[in-house]
């Protein structure tokens, strides 16, 4: 289960910081291979510490639920919120995913100009 959470978190971080399908004005896919579509690899990610609480669901005899979406849904939101929070003092309110370095830089520049 920890492994599945790790994988979900990796995907969530990838969506928040790296992954984007980019098309040009003619509808041509520009991020058409892994040379251009950025995926997180192990070296991009920190060590994960996982913990859990246990609340058996009443809806089946084993009290179990699927874990697949917990890591991936929560991670993207946590990462984006954390970045925006650390830039809030500069006036940044929102940045679209993925938060590439250039997008974060643009957000900082624009906030400084009161946009």
């Amino acid at each position: 289960m920890a492994g599945q959470v790790h994988g979900g978190v990796a995907q969530g971080i990838g969506q928040a910081l790296m992954e984007q399908a980019v098309y040009d004005d003619n509808g041509q896919l520009l991020s058409g291979s892994l040379m251009d579509y950025a995926l997180p690899v192990a070296a991009d990610l920190p060590e994960f510490q996982t913990d859990h609480t246990v609340t058996p669901t009443p809806s089946n005899p084993w009290g179990v639920k699927g874990i697949g979406e917990a890591g991936t849904i929560a991670a993207s939101a946590a990462v984006v919120n954390s970045v925006v929070d650390s830039l809030a003092h500069l006036g940044v309110r929102h940045i679209d995913m993925p938060l590439t370095a250039e997008r974060v830089w643009d957000a900082i520049q624009s906030a400084g100009q009161g946009r």
Partner: peptide, 12 residues
């Protein structure tokens, strides 16, 4: 300039 970094960001 490309999808990873614009000309402006590269100069920066």
């Amino acid at each position: 300039g490309d999808i990873h970094a614009s000309e402006r960001y590269r100069r920066h």
